[in-house]
Nucleic acid binder design. Sequence first.
DNA 1: CTCTAACGGTTTAAATCTGAACTACATTCC
DNA 2: GGAATGTAGTTCAGATTTAAACCGTTAGAG
Lengths: 152, 152
Amino acid sequence: MTTGTRWLDSEQQVAWRAYLLGTARLMAKLDDDLRQFGLGINDYEILVRLSEAPDRRLRMADLADRLHQSRSRLTHTVGRLEAADLVRRTSCKSDKRGVWAELTDAGFSLLEQAAPSHVEGVRENLVDLATPEDFAAVGRVFDAVSEHIGQR
Amino acid sequence: MTTGTRWLDSEQQVAWRAYLLGTARLMAKLDDDLRQFGLGINDYEILVRLSEAPDRRLRMADLADRLHQSRSRLTHTVGRLEAADLVRRTSCKSDKRGVWAELTDAGFSLLEQAAPSHVEGVRENLVDLATPEDFAAVGRVFDAVSEHIGQR
DNA sequence: CTCTAACGGTTTAAATCTGAACTACATTCC
DNA sequence: GGAATGTAGTTCAGATTTAAACCGTTAGAG
């Protein structure tokens, strides 16, 4: 009795492919639009998370988790952002192993410049293309995905 | 009269972040699960597209467009797949500039091995987590995104 | 207290990806 | 026909990402 694979049905297949292609195109577009500010979407997200945090700073590991990135990748990226004077590193007093990544004024300022255009891009290329219900569904689905997969 | 930025409202914000994090986690998970077959999700998708094409082959540019990849990236990836004997390149007779990327028997065979586990992963970490309606919404949304952004 | 395991972060080297430059062929327009 | 322009694909150099090894520091067990 062969417990065969539960393949995707035709509609699921189509939706899955649409998601793959749509995501690829969307990310490429957003990346592209951010290039005028010298940022990629990954850099941008880092700056945003920092800007929202208390004292505009986060511990490296915390930041890595929020973005689901390896600590190694984050070290490299923050290194570049630091070289561009957008982020500053300071060591953590209470845990000497720790490092704070802190948004500089220049970083905050660049973020203020880039944000309107970026958000407009997210609207134009995603949010405004969907009905509110459909977009809410996207949120629910990927929230469930995150929840299911959990931390790395 | 300041035509201010149309920021995302709180729910849109949450949905957008859920999508970003969920996608990051999902892709990492699928990549991870494919590693046992020596493939990444990008390699896998290439093999799948080839396997579905007439004569199991596609022109490089065609394949690149379907995956929204640069020709350069595809050249590299196919080069590696060719080295692993999963894909074969042949030159196109009708257009001497062209190159066919063709799935080898080994490539097809590996795909047959990997597919059940991969599809199960897509189900477990995405499809089965959503109601059919919600998942259909995801399909609609990203189809609209693809349509809107168009070819590169 | 002290030993050991775990954590936080960086470094290193290799793998992969990007973008521009380049080669060859094809097409278009006099 | 032949020059200009466009297309397909590759190559090159540089940037980014990955995975593993590594170094302090911290925490937990005995």
